[in-house]
């Protein structure tokens, strides 16, 4: 499963980053790394982007970007 398929309220564990370019690096540097648990907070009023909580802080990202994050529901 990938992050963009998660619904608001879902909690999941990050398994893998499936992209190796700038976007992947950026996700990683913002604190998206395997093993971390995250929670989807909400989608924007127009569905895109989405907001997730990573440990202590909140990050918004587009679904197009979230689809590269493989997760498993926890």
């Amino acid at each position: 499963m990938t992050l963009d398929q998660m619904k608001p309220g879902n909690e999941c564990r990050i398994k893998r980053l499936m992209i190796h370019d700038q976007l992947g690096q950026r996700l990683l540097d913002m604190g998206v790394y395997p093993g971390l648990t995250l929670k989807v907070i909400r989608n924007a009023p127009l569905e895109d982007p989405m907001e997730v909580c990573l440990g202590g802080f909140f990050v918004s990202l587009r679904h197009d970007e979230a689809k590269y994050v493989e997760v498993s529901l926890s």
């Binding site: 700038q22 996700l27 913002m30 990050v59 918004s60 990202l61």
Partner: peptide, 8 residues
């Protein structure tokens, strides 16, 4: 361009 990912 840059990814959108942004801290709230």
């Amino acid at each position: 361009t840059a990814p959108f990912i942004m801290e709230m």
